[in-house]
């Protein structure tokens, strides 16, 4: 789930906050774009599709493709449309799907 990121921050300075993604702690730039910050932290994939379970990660970064979906406080959100806040609890959406339906 976490690999060495190919994304690099040109201005890595600035305050960071602790955020949990799928059970692991990450230090992300406060107020940064959540999808970007997760990419920089090496998170991939962001989710698995409910149809086939295929891995997905951000594609458009402009709120149009919905491949960056994550679950924040029980609500599915587009990570590329969210800003990082302290203590965010983030999960992969649909994680507990039982595959029965």
């Amino acid at each position: 789930m976490k690999t060495a990121s190919t994304f690099r921050e040109l201005e890595p300075e600035g305050p960071r906050v602790r955020v949990r993604f799928a059970g692991r702690d990450l230090l992300l730039r406060e107020g940064g774009n959540l999808a970007a910050e997760l990419l920089a932290a090496g998170v991939t994939p962001f989710r698995r599709t409910p149809v086939s379970g295929a891995p997905r990660a951000p594609f458009c970064m402009m709120g149009a493709c919905f491949d960056c979906l994550v679950e924040i406080d029980g609500v599915t959100r587009q990570a590329c449309m969210c800003e990082v806040g302290p203590g965010m609890e983030i999960a992969m959406p649909f994680a507990e799907r039982d595959g029965d339906a």
């Binding site: 409910p50 149809v51 959406p93 507990e96 799907r97 039982d98 029965d100 339906a101």
Partner: peptide, 21 residues
């Protein structure tokens, strides 16, 4: 709605969960 994990067992006149979720 978006596809959800199993939530509703039986359909009603108000809501039902479709086979795709």
């Amino acid at each position: 709605t978006e596809k959800l994990p199993k939530l509703l067992n039986r359909p009603s006149l108000l809501a039902r969960q479709v086979d795709e979720g």
